[in-house]
Amino acid sequence: MNKIFIVVISIVMLTGCPKPPLQEIADAKAALESARIAGAQTYAPKEYSSAEGYVKKAQDDSDNRQYNDAKVEALTGKQLAEAAKQLALARQTKGTAGNEGEQSTTTSLLSGIGITESSIIGRGSLGEGVIIKQLKRISFAFDDYSLSNDAQTILIENAKWLSSNPGIKIQIEGHCDERGSEEYNLALGEKRANAAKDYLKQLGVASDRMSVISYGKERPLNPGHDEKAWAENRRDEFVVVTR
């Protein structure tokens, strides 16, 4: 911790400029969101709330033109958020907190097919199920639910993995960027999830192993408001579920 602080302070001294630390705050918020998606609120609540406190304080100080303080707080908040995420993921795999029943089922299911704790990179959008490295997410163009060549390539890989792990069931989550209405985006997200499901079915994955759900624009991966964030948020997630 001390080391982090010294590094942080030296960065501030080197730059020392009176500009609002927009990038640092954005990074910290992204790290916090990533920790949240990983279930840190449930699995590392103390660490998460500490990180959240720093990020909020950074924003407040930045709003009040205390840019140097804000920058230190943003960097600290980011570090703490990353730590909270790691801890949450580790605890989830061990099933040490939260819904014991489901956690241990997930864990034994995963260990039964050789998925290690390091494979888990996130949680389903309502905190259930896990996102693993082996099943990659796919991306979409704006207001579009057709599968690009890249998306099809990824789906072929995902189908291969699912074929060699027949005990796995997945829920496909369709997501959108923040532009447009809540309602249209809910429909668009479902179209995206169904597009992946239909393609995986063509590739031989049994449809009773796959369910779909749309989260519209409600669960962005990147909380930003620019092209980069939007592109990241237009996606399907493949969540391993236990029922």
Partner: peptide, 8 residues
Amino acid sequence: NTPGINVS
């Protein structure tokens, strides 16, 4: 009854 999206 169309194959696309009808909402709102």
